[in-house]
Structures are given as C-alpha cells and as structure tokens.
Computed example of a mutant assay.
Amino acid sequence: MEPALPATSFDREIGTLAEFDAVLAERGTLAGHRVQAVDLTGRTSALLTADVSGAVFLGCPMEPRAGARVRAAGALVFPPVPGLPFDPYRAHLYAPDELFAGLAGEGGYEATPDARAYAWFRRTKADGDVFASMLRAVHDDSVSDALDELLAGARVVGVMGGHAMGRGTDAYAGAARLGRCLARAGFTVATGGGPGAMEAANLGAYAAPHDDKMLAAALQLLARTATFTPSVTAWARAAFEVRERFPDGGTSVGIPTWFYGHEPPNAFASHLAKYFANATREDGLLARSGAGVVFLPGAAGTVQEIFDNATPNYYESRGEPTPMVLVDEAHWTRHLPAWPLLRALARDRAMKGRIALVESVDDAAGALEAMG
C-alpha cells in the first residue's frame, strides 16, 4: 500500500489564504502568528481590525494602508522582494509543475522557473552580494521548515545513487522497482531529486498505486530520451508525457540543489525541496531518512553519502543507528570497495547490526525490514 504523507498541522504558522481565514474565524486574532507568502491584498479589512501584535508577515503582498496599520499595531513585516525567480519566504515545498512551468512552450526548459533560479544563483554567487546571500539562506531555511512539516511522522527511506544512470538500462529499471517496492511497503521514498537513479526511485514511488504494467510502459516511454544531455527539455517533456498518460501517481520526496544546476530536478517526486546550499541539502536528506538508506551503485557522490551517513551512526550522534543497505556486491567490494571499510568501521559498534550488502534491488526492502 503506497503511503500517504502525514497531514501538516499548523499552530502559529499560516501558509495559505484558507489557513489565514480559518485562524481569524476560530481564534479571532493574528497575534503571535507567522504568515508566509500569502497574498493578503484581498484581506485589507481584516488587517485593519485584527490584533496583530507580535505577528510576523513574511513576503505577503498587502495594500499600503494595511501594511502601515499592521506595522503600527506591532507586527513585523518583511515585504516581497521584486524581480526574483523564486519566493524566499515560501511556506510549502515545490511541485514539479511549478518548477517546470513553461516547459511546453517555445522557450523549453530555459524558460522555466527552475532554470531561471539557477541563472540567478550563478549570477549572484559570482558577485558576492550579501543581500543575495541572505535571500538564499532565508529561502533554504523556509524549505527546511516545510520539509520537516511534510515528513513529520513519516517512515522515510533515502535512496542514493548516481545521476548518470540512464533511462532504458537494467539498472534504471531496478531502481524504479526498488522505489515501487518501498512505497508499497509503506515507506516514504526520498531521493536527491535529480536524474538517474534518483529519478528512477521517484518514478517507482509514483508507479506504486498503479498496476505493474504501468511501470513497464513508463520505462519504455522514457527510454526514448535516455539522459538529460544534450537536451533537458526533451528529457523533462518525456517525464511529463508519462505523468499525463498515467495520472494520480504516488507520493515521494526529492531534495535537489541549484548548486548542481546543470542537473535538473525530476518530475516524478511529488514534493521537491530544492536548495541553493548543497551541504544543507545533503545533510538534511540523510538526517531525515530515519527508516534507513539504500545506496545504489554510484561514484564519488554516492561514496561520500555512504560515509556521511556512517559517521553519525558510528558515533550514535542521532540516537540509534539507521539501517544502511548497499546494493550490488561487485560494485561495493571490488569496483569501489566501500563495503569493507564500512564493515570495519562497524566492528564493535552499535551500527554493526544495521548495515547490509545485498546483490540486487529486489533484496533491499527485505534487508531494511529485517533491520527495522
């Protein structure tokens, strides 16, 4: 059974107009609340009369007289920043449709908000503007907050693997089966949100509510555009063709970064927590994978992720070690022998019983369950 992500609960945070109205109706006050990226231009009468003492408005458009009144009444107002291709105060994670808006037009991928945000990042990172740095930090903190709210109570399994894994390969199909198996077992699949193994695992979770024929058909459609080079546009459009043909897919999370902006996010993660800071993204993905992490064959990035996850397990700095499953014995013992080192680290430590090496993706979910 494909898992439903827990409902988000709000106490003092307001992220939609419906929540704004509900808070006023139920509590009669906005005092002490945080309102994030809600267009309040149609709520002037409420803002002119409500108690807003101690409230904070983050990037909320409002009429000038409403803004003047809430400031005078003791609220703190951070106005929207014009001209940005993203909202630094956003209250929710991205959806693929949002990041890829405009993909079907003449401009293709280069016209999408995702590509424009990457262009902004490259430009402002090079000029060292402290204001741009602050905006990136505020954005990433907002994304982390939204991610924590989304995943509260979920059994999250991280799936790590290389971006170079091509559509149409046995490895890609295997990673997709893994994502489907994990989702059907009640886990929430989380990946780095990019192409290759990451896309495949998110695709599998997307396919979980459908019959098995759906995944086979999707893999066949995607194989026509094997990689995101030379054309991200063609690669992404193929994914949206699958989504249009097979709507109502399952939920999963992708956590990509504009730091590697040449690697686009994939369209099969239902929720995308996209960051500017890669270090925040990498640590956050592993830290939130409390039900375990599966490491598919990869290169330097995946090796780094193995030992990024092994370190807190070794020192038990996050509590009980989380399960770690490495897939493909030949890859992790001979090609890139991370397994012998990992096993040596685990000797006489609590993590010893929380690591496993399996031959194929079909064994990974069972290994996780056995260690869970």
Rank of each mutant, 00 (worst) to 15 (best):
M1A: 10
T8P: 09
S9I: 15
R12P: 12
L17R: 14
F20T: 12
V23A: 11
G28T: 11
H33V: 12
Q36W: 09
Q36E: 14
A37R: 10
D39P: 02
L40F: 07
T41N: 11
T41S: 10
T44G: 13
T49R: 14
V56R: 15
G59N: 01
P61C: 06
E63Q: 14
P64E: 02
G67S: 09
V70A: 07
R71P: 13
R71H: 05
A72Y: 13
F78K: 14
F78I: 06
V81Y: 00
P82D: 03
P82W: 12
L84H: 07
P85H: 02
F86E: 10
A95I: 10
L99E: 07
A101D: 13
A101K: 11
G102A: 00
E106C: 04
E110G: 06
A111I: 06
P113L: 06
D114V: 08
R116Q: 13
W120M: 05
R123D: 11
R123Q: 15
R123N: 09
D129T: 08
S133V: 11
D140W: 06
A146L: 04
D148V: 06
L151W: 09
G153R: 03
R155L: 12
R155H: 10
H163G: 00
R167H: 08
G168H: 09
A171F: 09
Y172T: 05
A176F: 14
R177C: 03
L178D: 04
R184D: 03
A185S: 07
G186V: 07
F187I: 01
T188A: 09
T188F: 02
A190C: 07
G192V: 00
G193V: 00
P195T: 05
E199L: 00
L203E: 00
A208Q: 02
H210V: 03
H210K: 14
L215K: 12
A216W: 05
A217N: 14
A218I: 03
R224L: 07
R224Y: 05
A226T: 14
F228Y: 15
P230R: 03
A234C: 02
W235N: 08
A239I: 02
A239E: 15
E241D: 11
R245N: 02
F246A: 02
G250L: 00
T251D: 13
S252P: 11
G254D: 06
I255F: 03
T257C: 00
T257S: 01
G261W: 00
F268Q: 01
A269E: 08
A269D: 12
A273M: 01
A273T: 08
K274N: 10
F276P: 08
N278V: 04
G290H: 11
G290E: 09
A291D: 04
A291I: 04
V293P: 05
V294S: 06
L296P: 02
P297I: 03
A310R: 04
P312K: 05
E316F: 00
R318T: 07
P321D: 10
V327A: 01
H331V: 04
H331R: 08
W332G: 06
T333A: 01
P337E: 13
P337K: 01
L341Y: 15
L342G: 07
L345E: 12
I355K: 03
L357H: 05
S360M: 10
V361Y: 07
A364H: 08
G366M: 10
E369A: 14
